[in-house]
Amino acid sequence: MTRKFTWFNATSLTFAFAFLYLPILILIVYSFNESKLVTVWAGFSTKWYGELLHNQAMLDAAWVTFRVAFTTATLATILGTMAAYVLVRSGRFYGRTLFSGMIYAPLVMPDVIIGLSLLLLFIAMNIDRGMMTVIIAHTTFAMCYVAVVVSSRLISFDRSLEEAALDLGCSPMEAFFYVTLPIIAPSVVAGWLLAFTLSLDDLVIASFTTGPGATTLPIKIWSAVRLGVSPEINALSTILISIVTVGVIAASTIDRRRAARAGERG
């Protein structure tokens, strides 16, 4: 390897990562600020975290969000894995171009369009809006992310492993559950986590498709931040960031260990 890591490279990396992380760090630091004025440092305090714990509306929203995200992630993983299978394995079939179009388009489609169109569909179908409609909406776009993540793993999957399973007496279903699924499991788990965070994160689509009693955390945060900066929101953000960070680092460490173990030989 003759790659040269120059001063220029180091400097651009330093600035870029500072740009990426400084705002988040500042946000976290000010969540421990005594003062209500977020930009004036008035000493260390954890009082905003305490207030958060007593904010029943916030806690309710968090519980709704969790249930939505969990159901969404599970549904999206099932549908997305099926879709990945279709993309990678089904070869040519009538309407394939449309299908792959519908998988890739939601990845970049503006949220407002997805949200508005789904809401109008629910109204046209006379479906009462609530948690269920948010779950359907989130599943629709999250399954596309899952499909992309899983299909990239399936492409490099050695098909003779499935053939070997069939050859040794498995039905196609058994071959999937005994051989394919355990091997692609890391990507399926990654897909689930991605779907979970996407659902956890979404404001726009949830705002369109939600109904009474189904206020999610981002909707709650949104109505708070539109009124300006509030240390309580900083505290909430800090908690969410910590959870995600710990989760992502743990997931990737496990993955790296697996990779390292797989690399012990050849």
Binding site: L20, Y21, P23, I24, I26, L27, Y30, V38, T39, T197, L200, D201, L203, P218, I221, W222, V225, G228, V229, I233, N234, S237, L240, I241, V244, T245, G247, V248
Partner: peptide
Amino acid sequence: ILPFWTSFLIRVYAWVGI
């Protein structure tokens, strides 16, 4: 990748204070 997993809304909000 890490910031991508953390809430979009929170990351935008972080700039308000700045």
